[in-house]
Amino acid sequence: MTEHINHIELTKRHDLEKYIIRTYNLTKIYNKGEPSEVVALNNVSFGIEQGKMVSIAGPSGSGKSTLLNILGCMDSATSGEAFLKEIEITGLSEGKLATIRKTEIGFVFQDFLLIPTLSALENVLLPLIPDGISKTDRERALKTLAMVGLEQRAKHKPKELSGGEKQRIAIARALINNPSIIFADEPTGNLDSKNGDEIIALLRSLNREMGVTVVIVSHDPRVWEKTDQILRLEDGIIFVPNGNESR
């Protein structure tokens, strides 16, 4: 690990704990060894500071979603290391990754991914279903709905909600387990600019008030403006601000 340290532009050994995410030469190669081989992430080394709201920009196919999925414990890397807090997530078993997704991570996707048969409240409670839902859980979910401004919609089914409202429900679902980090992959992609702005503003306020780290993949400069830091991916290579390439 020591030999990677100098890859991280901002990092010195004594302040490692200020990073919620750290990666060292993180590489993802799809269909390795086949003619269709794609190097989606190429020795990506960087860090994301705890409590920040960060955007990841870059052209289509540059590896943004790939990076998010690996950091979000939904996919494995081909090589390199990634840390969430002090946990090395690269190389963990499926079961352990699932536990981390449940306790540490919230996801928001472009097309909301609400379950149509469940009410807004039940969708928010979805992550808790396997372990059982207590009365306090239900109250917490209602509070979370209130935080995203939709306590009046608790009983509504997704088809009765607007796109912006659906995305708010998805954000409430991401928040229900008090995650330390939220990954949002083009959360405004299916929304008009007004609703998009509102979603970003909501994420911003959650980030400020709850201290939850937010990582947003977006093509939209209006989103970038609202974030603390803009990371850029190009052909699987990461560029961190102040002009420093990670490699």
């Binding site: 997704r101 996801f107 609400l114």
Partner: peptide
């Protein structure tokens, strides 16, 4: 499939 995907993304275990 999308529902199972989101269930898994939010931490549901395979066996569940």
């Amino acid at each position: 499939m999308k529902e199972f995907a989101i269930m898994k993304a939010t931490g549901w275990k395979n066996r569940t």
